[in-house]
Computed example of a mutant assay.
Amino acid sequence: MKLSTLPVFLASALLVHSMNAGAQESQTAPASAAAARDALAKKEGEGDQSALLKETLTAVDKQYSLIRRGKTQFTYDLNYSYIGQEKIVTDFTSSGLTLFDIENVNSHIITNTFSADYGVRDNLTANVTLPLITKYAETRGHSGVSNSVGDIVLGARFQPFEARRDAPGLTLTSNLRLPSGRSPFKIIAGSGEATGSGVTALSLGVNVNRIVDPVALFGSLNVTASAPAKDLSQVTGTRVLTRVQPGMSIGFGLGFAYALSYGITTTVSFQEAVSQGSKLRFEDGLNVKTSTQTSGMLNMGLGYRVSPKTTLNFSVGIGLTNDSPNLSMGLNVPLAF
């Protein structure tokens, strides 16, 4: 080979090598891009963030999404709450205040709640809730544990308008609470702790939610009225309590849920309830009205999707007022049969 033709030969060889390398790169690049797309793509059965947000909203308040007609859904909730407070004990006679004492009251409450939802229509869901309560209370004078059924709740949720992705969802709610638990107005000191409210109550409310993927905003407003507890005979100090008329209560809440991924969501919400004072009547004709109570809770939650149809929801609540539980923790588990 002549020296004059060597540069031409080398140039041709380099051109062929570059063409072969370019062809290999053109084949590798699409394959790498396809692999990346497959790795980042949503796998089959993962659902979407909107569905996960709806499940999370349902677990947060059990009022934000309905089930199909003829379908049944069961849910189990486990909740622990701690209440620590200083209770003022007083008694009145014709001569005025005769007893004034302050005692510390510590209560640990574990609630196992079983709920069943049934789709009456596509936009109407009926609900029944059965709580089983274990309560331990400790005061300076005594301590005790109570295991009993709590107040059973019958409820209904109704969506007057068809849900649309680009519009807020509206749900009307009603709940009838039955005094099936141990009444606080009938227990005898030292014989156990109350596990119910002791009165029948009706609640009406409205809930609004808006999903802006990957965030869902929600809020609620409700009003509760209670029937009086009559024909009582509870000894309180030196008097006998005969009638209690609980005051009306107004509550509201707001918050948001955020989908971190197809399997993880977080929620932050605030709830507050303002209750008017109760009217107490004693056997000797004395009438007393208690002060207004305000309860506020800050709740934080985490939802974890373990399967396409099952999402576990954990929550922690912190009391913001003196009338609120100091701490609450909850676990929500859908049940399938």
Rank of each mutant, 00 (worst) to 15 (best):
R68P: 05
M329K: 06
V215A: 03
L6V: 08
S203D: 12
F337N: 09
R239E: 09
G277S: 12
Q85K: 10
Q293P: 01
D117V: 03
G285I: 01
G285N: 01
L10Y: 06
A29I: 08
K2E: 03
Q63C: 05
A167N: 07
Q293L: 09
A13N: 06
S291G: 03
S203C: 08
G192S: 12
S261W: 13
A59Q: 05
S269K: 04
S197C: 03
L327D: 13
L302G: 00
T56M: 08
S269G: 10
K87D: 10
Q276M: 07
L15Y: 01
I83F: 01
T238V: 14
Q27Y: 09
V208H: 04
Y80G: 15
A51W: 04
M297N: 12
Q159N: 00
E55D: 13
Y258E: 00
G303F: 00
H17Y: 00
S324D: 10
I83E: 03
Q85P: 05
I109F: 02
G317A: 14
G301R: 03
L298G: 11
Q276V: 05
Q159K: 01
G22V: 12
Y262M: 09
D117S: 08
F337P: 01
T75R: 07
L52K: 10
I67R: 09
Y82F: 12
L202N: 01
T139Y: 04
V89T: 06
I318T: 05
Y76R: 09
D122F: 04
D61V: 02
R121Y: 05
N106K: 07
A33D: 11
T58C: 09
S95E: 07
V244R: 11
A273K: 12
L312Y: 12
G319M: 11
S50Y: 14
V120L: 10
A11S: 13
L66V: 00
I211C: 11
L3P: 04
T5K: 05
I211H: 13
H17Q: 01
N207A: 05
P334H: 08
A39S: 10
G119S: 02
S81H: 06
E55Y: 05
F100H: 11
N209K: 02
A116P: 01
A201M: 04
F9A: 08
G144W: 09
D91C: 08
G47V: 07
Q24R: 15
S107G: 14
Q293S: 09
A336V: 13
T90Q: 06
F218R: 03
G141I: 10
N104T: 12
L232W: 11
E55Q: 14
G96N: 07
T28E: 10
I83S: 04
L14T: 08
S233K: 13
E138L: 12
Q63Y: 00
R121T: 06
F337H: 09
T72Y: 15
R165C: 07
G296I: 06
Y262N: 12
I133P: 00
G144Q: 15
G150H: 03
G303A: 10
L53A: 08
N79Y: 11
D151G: 05
S180E: 07
S95V: 08
N222F: 11
T173G: 14
N127A: 11
